[in-house]
């Protein structure tokens, strides 16, 4: 297996190179963030006097605590409700198999490829007429709707594979459909649900378009939208912008590193099932 060995080394080298390219932007952000505020450092150049205080400054300028709170509130509004609605519908279409399921499933599936830009204009006027502009609901409610195709699709794929004998035996014990769903099927769906939860969390947290169009106050936006506003305000100060960007992407990064296995699996499944 001498050939195999050389191949393995080429593989390693390639992998390391690829990782370097992946990490390069992060490194550049980090090094730039340490330069004196207001300066224009060139390239990747370690500052003579690293300004760690920039992170503190950016933390205050971006009002990180409030930003995190806002994003958490939005995620709490979107994810549990999307999971619930998606599971209910997925259960009905995949397991209860009521008449007309194919039609309604098709209606949902058609929304899978929808680019958000396609409906952002009417959504703006609709949200405005509901009096929700500049509230977190302006992001939460449309996102739940926009996540329905994927949520239903995902949960249906799970329920389609659940043996019906399970329900039959519970039925014999006298359980009604709701008990059947809540006591037997939801607990069994936990792996699928948690993967879906991770995906929805990520997509909500990083949602940009809805945030910048529907909410003007950065403190009521998602993290990603707030970063847009931060760039608008501090884009003239490169080191501060870099420090702020790093801070803003830290929460997802930390959560990713803690739950990385679930994340990777979820993302892989997510794209495969999709």
């Amino acid at each position: 297996m001498i050939v195999g060995r050389r191949e393995a080394w080429t593989g390693r080298l390639l992998l390391v190179l690829l990782m370097a390219v992946t990490l390069m932007p992060f490194l550049s952000l980090f090094v730039t963030a340490l330069h004196p505020s207001g300066s224009y450092p060139s390239g990747l150049e370690w500052p003579s006097d690293p300004q760690w205080g920039n992170f503190v400054k950016a933390f205050q300028a971006a009002r990180m605590i409030e930003l995190i709170k806002s994003s958490v509130l939005i995620v709490l509004g979107v994810v549990p409700l999307s999971l619930l609605l998606g599971t209910l519908a997925g259960f009905a279409i995949g397991h209860l198999r009521m008449a007309g399921r194919n039609l309604v499933f098709l209606v949902f599936v058609l929304g899978l490829t929808l680019p958000f830009e396609g409906i952002i204009t009417p959504l703006y006027y609709q949200v405005r007429d509901m009096g929700l502009l500049n509230t977190r609901w302006a992001i939460i409610l449309p996102l739940i709707g926009l996540f329905m195709p994927f949520g239903v699709f995902w949960m249906r794929a799970h329920f389609v594979n659940v043996p019906e004998a399970l329900s039959e035996s519970a039925r014999i014990d006298g359980a009604n459909v709701w008990q059947l769903f809540w006591r037997i099927h939801v607990p069994l769906a936990m792996p699928a649900l948690s993967s879906l939860a991770i995906l929805l969390f990520l997509w909500t947290w990083n949602q940009f378009l809805l945030a910048i169009v529907l909410v003007d106050d950065p403190l009521k936006r998602t993290m990603s939208g707030a970063l847009g506003a931060f760039q608008g305000q501090w884009g003239t100060d490169m080191p501060l912008l870099c420090a702020g960007s790093l801070l803003i992407l830290t929460p997802t990064l930390v959560i990713f590193l803690i739950f990385q296995r679930r994340f990777v699996t979820a993302l892989l499944q997510g794209s495969l099932k999709g």
Binding site: L84, L85, G86, L88, A89, F91, A92, I93, L96, R97, M98, G100, R101, V104, V107, F108, G111, L141, I144, G145, M148, P149, G151, V152, F181
Partner: peptide, 12 residues
């Protein structure tokens, strides 16, 4: 079944 689907469908 339709009752289960309804909430998702309405929001959507």
């Amino acid at each position: 079944g339709w009752l289960f689907v309804a909430p998702a469908l309405i929001v959507y």
